[in-house]
Design a binder for these strands. Structure first.
Lengths: 193, 193
DNA sequence: GTCTATATGAAGATAGAC
DNA sequence: GTCTATCTTCATATAGAC
């Protein structure tokens, strides 16, 4: 493990600052100071404050999409697949609470072009959830009328925890993930969950 | 129905602007222009931009707390009570999507004192949900191990819809509220929901 | 690649006429 | 209570030395 580069230190400082204060309330001075540099140093490594946000947002979205796709491919059993999907998706938002907060709540601050790009990732993530639920319905294992609405509800549950979750609090990421995985199965009508 | 006062017009303009852009990205010029006034007019009716936010946030929180308390008192039956609670809480967030967005996502922009005040409202709302779930567990109607976590999950589901819900989209507030009420009952282990 | 110094613009809020 | 004009502060981003 080598030292992080200045570029990487600035990204991590930006995640911290954006998560705590929000993009618009964060100053480039705040970011560079957290990274232990002068205000000007930021622009040697990143073109603008928005570019920093885009970096965080785009990697974060790609990450979560890859994760749910991997889970989807990992099993043929609808119950185990949905359980693991909600478990991992929930856990990611708790473990990476700061990054997740930026990913989920600062989309409006991106340029229109960057916003369109992440919108694509988001559509794809929802599609994987719909596929996972739809497969269970097709096999007669799940009892769901509104597949799309149920997918949105499960995603919402996991995403919203970045609004209130605190790493210092009593709950572990795994504890919440377990609970939310159970709630996901109950939501699709698997009664012995 | 008389004309809204300038004061009220400014509050409504602020809700619109804060919901679309966020508190920090909104300028006082934007608010006053939306209300059809000059930048200076805002300060005749409101002390500051933060005071406008506080007005929206505090009334919104008081509103939702009163609503869930009313629902709690309206029935003794745990199933009907929780169903109605999730229905009304969800519907409120869809119907008042812009106001709800400001209420739920701009807490960090309040002054510490104002933030403490709304934190109290939020604790109380969670408590009503915990009571509603706990009562069903005590009566042996609900099957829930983690009452607090389940309450948070149900609240999260409803709150998060302000992030994606669009009045122009295909879903009605009542349609989402029906679905989320059903999901709430399934979450507490009422299997014929 | 880092710094100090600064250009440039725009924000929140106020002054003072009507 | 509304306006125009403006004060003051602070933000993003750049210039240029080392």
């Amino acid at each position: 493990m080598s030292e992080p580069t200045s570029r990487q230190r600035l990204i991590e400082a930006a995640i911290e600052a954006f998560a705590e204060r929000g993009f618009h309330a964060t100053t480039t001075r705040d970011i560079s100071t957290r990274a232990g540099m002068s205000p000007a140093a930021l622009y040697v490594h990143h073109a603008s404050k928005e570019q920093l946000l885009y970096e965080v947002s785009s990697f974060g979205h790609a990450d979560t999409l890859a994760m749910v796709r991997e889970v989807y491919a990992s099993s043929e059993d609808p119950v185990e697949r949905l359980r693991l999907m909600q478990y991992e998706f929930t856990r990611w938002h708790a473990v990476h609470q700061q990054k997740a907060r930026v990913v989920q709540y600062e989309i409006a601050a991106l340029t229109p072009e960057h916003r369109r790009e992440v919108a694509g990732y988001r559509r794809d993530i929802e599609q994987v959830y719909r596929d996972a639920i739809g497969a269970g319905v097709d096999k007669g294992v799940f009892d769901v009328e509104d597949v799309r609405g149920t997918a949105l509800a499960l995603i919402s549950m996991a995403i919203d925890l970045v609004r209130w979750y605190q790493a210092e609090g009593p709950r572990t990421p795994e504890g919440i993930a377990d609970l939310y995985a159970q709630l996901a199965l109950r939501a699709v009508g698997v009664s012995d969950a």
